[in-house]
Amino acid sequence: TGYYDVLGVKPDASDNELKKAYRKMALKFHPDKNPDGAEQFKQISQAYEVLSDEKKRQIYDQ
């Protein structure tokens, strides 16, 4: 599964769309709200870390 799929956004998503999707998913799977969501929360955080950084995103998109 790709990072875009993890966040539920298209590859041409804007920074604002990425942030909005990340916040929505992070709230849904945060371990405090969803004890079984810890692994998914890590994936969401990693996806956002890469896609929100312009240089990392360019490398990922290659």
Results as ranks from 00 to 15, higher is better:
Ser45Pro: 03
Phe41Met: 10
Pro35Ser: 05
Asp53Tyr: 05
Asp5Trp: 11
Ala38Val: 08
Ala21Thr: 00
Leu7Cys: 05
His30Ile: 05
Glu49Arg: 14
Gly8Val: 02
Gly8Gln: 06
Val50Asn: 04
Asn34Arg: 05
Lys42Trp: 10
Phe41Lys: 00
Asp53Ile: 05
His30Arg: 09
Pro31Tyr: 06
Val50Thr: 11
Pro31Ser: 07
Gln43Gly: 04
Lys19Ile: 09
Leu7Asp: 01
Phe41Asp: 01
Asp36Phe: 10
Lys56Trp: 06
Glu39Phe: 08
Lys10Ala: 12
Val50Glu: 05
Asp12Pro: 03
Gln62Thr: 09
Asn16Gly: 12
Pro11Cys: 14
Gln62Ser: 10
Val50Asp: 03
Asp32Trp: 09
Tyr48Trp: 12
Lys24Cys: 14
Ala38Lys: 08
Ser52Ile: 13
Gly37Trp: 13
Gln58Met: 12
Val50Pro: 01
Gly8Ile: 01
Asp12Val: 05
Gly2Asp: 14
Ile44Ser: 01
Lys10Gly: 10
Leu27Arg: 13
Ala26Met: 14
Val9Cys: 09
Pro35Arg: 05
Asp12Ala: 05
Glu54Gly: 12
Leu18Gln: 01
Arg23Gln: 14
Pro11Ile: 08
Ser52Lys: 08
Ser45Gln: 15
Leu18Lys: 00
Asp61Ala: 06
Asp61Trp: 05
Asp15Pro: 15
Glu49Leu: 10
Lys19Pro: 00
Asn16Ala: 15
Ala21Gln: 04
Glu54Asn: 12
Gln58Cys: 12
Lys33Gln: 10
Asp32Lys: 10
Asp36Cys: 11
Ser45Leu: 15
Phe29Asp: 00
Tyr48Ala: 02
Asn16Met: 15
Asp5Gly: 10
Glu49Asp: 09
Pro31Glu: 04
Asp12Thr: 12
Ile59Phe: 09
Met25His: 04
Ile44Gly: 02
Asp36Glu: 12
Arg23Gly: 07
Leu18Ser: 02
Ser14Tyr: 00
Ala13Gln: 01
Lys55Gln: 09
Val9Asp: 01
Val6Ser: 04
Gln40Val: 12
Glu54Phe: 14
Met25Leu: 15
Asp15Tyr: 15
Arg23Tyr: 13
Ser14Met: 03
Leu18Gly: 00
Lys28Trp: 06
Lys19Glu: 13
Leu27Met: 12
Ser14Arg: 05
Tyr22Pro: 00
Glu54Pro: 15
Pro11Asp: 04
Gly8Met: 06
Lys28Asp: 05
Glu39Asp: 12
Asp61Pro: 06
Asn34Leu: 05
Phe29Thr: 03
Tyr4Trp: 04
Ala38Ile: 10
Asp12Gly: 12
Asn34His: 08
Ala21Ser: 01
Lys42Pro: 06
Lys42Val: 07
Thr1Met: 14
Pro35Ile: 06
Phe41Gln: 02
Glu17Lys: 03
Ile59Cys: 13
Ile59Trp: 11
Gly2Trp: 15
Leu18Val: 09
Lys33Cys: 14
Ile44Pro: 01
Val50Ala: 07
